[in-house]
């Protein structure tokens, strides 16, 4: 297990009237190399959970184990080292850019790892390629780039750590559909090529369905489901009750089924829908 939490509980403002349980007894296990989606309503504890995974927040109770190391039972140096194992891309990461050039900004992380200059350069170029930006941008100021480009530079800045786990909090928020597809496609390639673990926090069920292998569902600081994507989307009613949704295409197939068509309801992507409809039509012809 690359990520494991045991009875992880986090309370904000302990001992004041504003005390709030943000995470309630979370037991989570994520295997190395998995692509996991994390879904939940606003305020369900998603961001709090991921902040625990690289020791930004300390649990009130329970343990967080990364690659077998308990983050709060090891030395401070080891804890800092796990920050390089678990790369965390926060929401709107473009607001953290600060250097004069794109190159320097992406190199900030690797530099903090005290790598050699050649290694830093290799990492900067490879992560820039992963996010699909041209090398001609390297000497530009990050503040001269477009919004989508800034976002990609910021993501590259975390990828350059070459972490074993890459966690992204809504990496596509606020982007136009094209930018959105582009970033998610780049992430898929990154996952395939590096074999690293990816944890994607998203509000979009379509994004989760298209990218993730399994999904974690959170509600009110509790872990509600952790199962393969098909399994999770089968619980349409529960998801709806939590203020979440299933992909629109899945709802189409649920309605078709209700209308009496003999179709599968385990359809989460347009591609799968196309296949199902075609085979259904063909099957129909056959019966004629």
């Amino acid at each position: 297990m690359i990520i494991e939490t045991k009875n992880l509980t986090h309370k904000y403002s302990v001992g004041t009237p504003f005390e709030k349980v943000a995470l309630d007894n979370i037991n989570l296990q994520i295997e190395e190399g998995a692509y996991v989606g994390l879904i939940g309503h606003t305020g369900s504890g998603k961001s709090t959970l991921i902040s625990h995974l690289n020791a930004i927040l300390q649990p009130t109770e329970g343990q967080v184990l990364i690659d077998g190391t308990d983050l709060w039972a090891c030395s401070k140096a080891e804890r800092i080292a796990t920050r390089f194992k678990v790369g965390l891309v926060f929401q709107y990461p473009e607001y953290q850019l600060f250097e004069e050039t794109v190159y320097k900004d992406i190199a900030f992380g690797p530099k903090n790892m005290k790598l050699s200059d050649e290694e830093i350069e290799r990492r900067v170029r490879s992560s820039l390629a992963f996010v699909g930006l041209k090398e001609s941008l390297l000497e530009k100021s990050p503040f001269d780039l477009s919004g989508g480009q800034k976002r990609r530079v910021a993501i590259a800045g975390v990828m350059a750590l070459e972490p074993k786990v890459l966690i992204l909090d809504e990496p596509a928020a606020g982007l136009d559909p094209k930018g959105r597809d582009e970033i998610l496609a780049r992430l898929r390639d990154y996952h395939k090529e590096t074999g690293s673990t990816v944890l994607l926090v998203s509000h979009s069920m379509e994004d989760i369905a298209r990218n993730a292998q399994s999904a974690i569902v959170m509600e009110d600081g509790r872990l509600k489901m952790h199962a393969p994507v098909e399994e999770v989307f089968r619980h349409t009613d529960e998801l709806t009750a939590m203020g979440l949704d299933v992909p629109q295409i899945t709802r189409v197939f649920f309605s078709l089924k209700e209308k009496g068509y003999d179709v599968s309801t385990d359809i989460y992507t347009i591609e799968a829908a196309k296949r199902e409809i075609l085979s259904h039509l063909k099957g129909g012809k056959h019966r004629d």
């Binding site: 930004i56 920050r83 926060f90 953290q96 600060f98 900030f108 992380g109 790892m113």
Partner: peptide
């Protein structure tokens, strides 16, 4: 911003006063 830079390995807590002042740049600029 502090958390985001910490996630990239920024260190605000160790070093002498000059190093710490320099470590603030990644926070102050954004």
């Amino acid at each position: 911003i502090m958390n985001a830079q910490k996630a990239r390995g920024a260190d605000f807590e160790t070093g002498n006063i000059f190093r710490r002042a320099k470590a603030l740049i990644p926070i102050l600029v954004p």
